[in-house]
């Protein structure tokens, strides 16, 4: 049996997965603390505890994500785009476009029929269209990030958030609150704003079905629905969307072992 480990250290969360023989999940975990925190250490502890394995049982470890350069316990590192494309094409071989919205950036990946990445695009250095945008808005509205989806579902007339800049959008949301716009419509408008921004990015490299969302923001049904409306295509989604990078890293780690 060959155990490989994939670690994805993002800006706000740390994710990890242990695979057996390059296909069976043995353990996976998500810690709500990212690079520069105790998150990666806690993640490793949880993965070993869950799997009953020890560090010496792991044949190869690959780290990815924003914090990959500072994580010392891996055998190699790869970019998160490379790992997300691998993870998604493993679970959904038919996917040709991956939209990955993380804590501080958004990426769109084009895959060919072999699951090989042929093109990609990242957002500019800007929080708009990322998980950070949703965090800021949730704070203003005094909601938990997980409640945004439920609120958005109740909307009947989503508010229009026209600013693409997070700072300006914050003022705009406060103005809308002052005008008495109700919470569900405001939240739906916020989700729509993220979707609109990311759809613009996605259209720059072209949308080819099937489309899949990965990354933390994929868990937000409000954004998924808004993005489906913007792009006019159905969007696949896995409950493990946030773990796609870690899965891809563990798959690459297995390939490294087999190619040795």
């Amino acid at each position: 049996m060959i155990y490989t480990l994939g670690i994805d250290i993002g800006s706000t969360t740390s994710k990890g997965m242990i695979l057996k023989d390059g296909s069976d999940e043995v353990a996976s975990s998500i810690v709500l603390a990212g690079t520069g925190t105790a998150g990666p250490k806690m993640l490793m502890e949880q993965l070993y505890e869950q799997s009953g394995l020890k560090p010496e049982d792991i044949a190869f470890t690959i780290v990815t994500g924003y914090g990959r350069k500072t994580f010392q316990e891996a055998d190699d590192q790869l970019s998160e785009l490379t790992c997300h494309s691998k993870g998604v094409s493993f679970l959904f071989p038919q996917v040709r476009t991956v939209i990955d919205i993380g804590g501080q950036d958004a990426k769109v990946l084009a895959l060919n029929d072999q699951g090989k990445m042929t093109n990609f695009i990242m957002n500019d250095k800007c929080a708009a269209g990322t998980g950070r945008f949703l965090d800021v808005m949730a704070q203003i509205l005094q909601l938990k990030i997980g409640d945004l989806e439920k609120e958005a579902e109740k909307a009947d007339n989503p508010a229009k958030i026209s600013s693409t800049c997070t700072v300006f959008a914050e003022s705009e949301v406060i103005s809308q609150l002052a005008m008495g716009v109700d919470m569900p419509n405001l939240v739906a408008g916020i989700c729509q704003s993220v979707a609109s921004r990311v759809a613009g990015l996605a259209k720059r490299i072209g949308i080819h079905e099937q489309v899949c969302m990965s990354g933390g923001v994929a868990q937000n049904g409000g954004v998924r629905q808004a993005l489906q409306n913007e792009l006019g295509v159905p969007i696949l989604y896995s409950e493990q969307a946030q773990l796609m990078g870690a899965l891809g890293a563990a798959l690459y780690a297995y390939e490294r072992v087999m190619n040795k």
Partner: peptide, 18 residues
């Protein structure tokens, strides 16, 4: 940082990790 991630991914795309 972002340029680094993009170039690293570009290398992966052109090279073996794709």
């Amino acid at each position: 940082e972002q340029a680094g991630t993009m170039i690293e991914t570009f290398k992966d795309m052109l090279g073996k990790n794709s």
